[in-house]
């Protein structure tokens, strides 16, 4: 996992150094989408090639789906609750500040 963090840090450093060149980042966004498409295609290939997965997909697929639903629902609810309890006021204000919007508070 160290290499992933290093690659990301190098990318962030390069991005930081190039942050003046605004036109470049529209191109970067397009490259990111293209690479995501490629990654999902490659992911599909590895699923299609894995005989264990293909042959028993209908049995273990249902189990996986149920577990995914549980984990996703649990994390979404727990995270939403945590956000409401610990973050709501301050970060809403700072986000508006960030966007450069004048927040007209009533009263």
């Amino acid at each position: 996992m160290v290499e992933i963090l290093v690659i990301m840090a190098v990318g962030m450093l390069i991005g930081y150094l190039l942050s003046e060149k605004k036109a470049l980042f529209a191109v970067i966004d397009r490259i990111v989408m293209a690479v995501i498409f490629l990654l999902l295609f490659v992911l599909g290939i590895s699923v299609g090639l894995n005989e264990t997965v293909v042959e028993s997909f209908h049995i273990i697929g249902v189990k996986a789906l149920v577990l995914t639903a549980g984990a996703v629902a649990g994390s979404v609810l727990c995270c939403g609750l945590a956000w409401r309890l610990f973050f709501s006021d301050t970060t809403e204000a700072s986000i508006h500040e960030e966007m450069g919007e004048g927040v007209p508070h009533e009263g």
């Binding site: 992933i4 690659i7 840090a9 990318g11 962030m12 390069i14 930081y16 190039l18 970067i28």
Partner: peptide, 18 residues
């Protein structure tokens, strides 16, 4: 491919000063 993706995502984040 994942490494390439992370690299480009990193550039995007690094370039966004806000």
């Amino acid at each position: 491919v994942l490494y390439a993706l992370i690299f480009f995502v990193g550039i995007g984040i690094g370039g966004d000063t806000t």
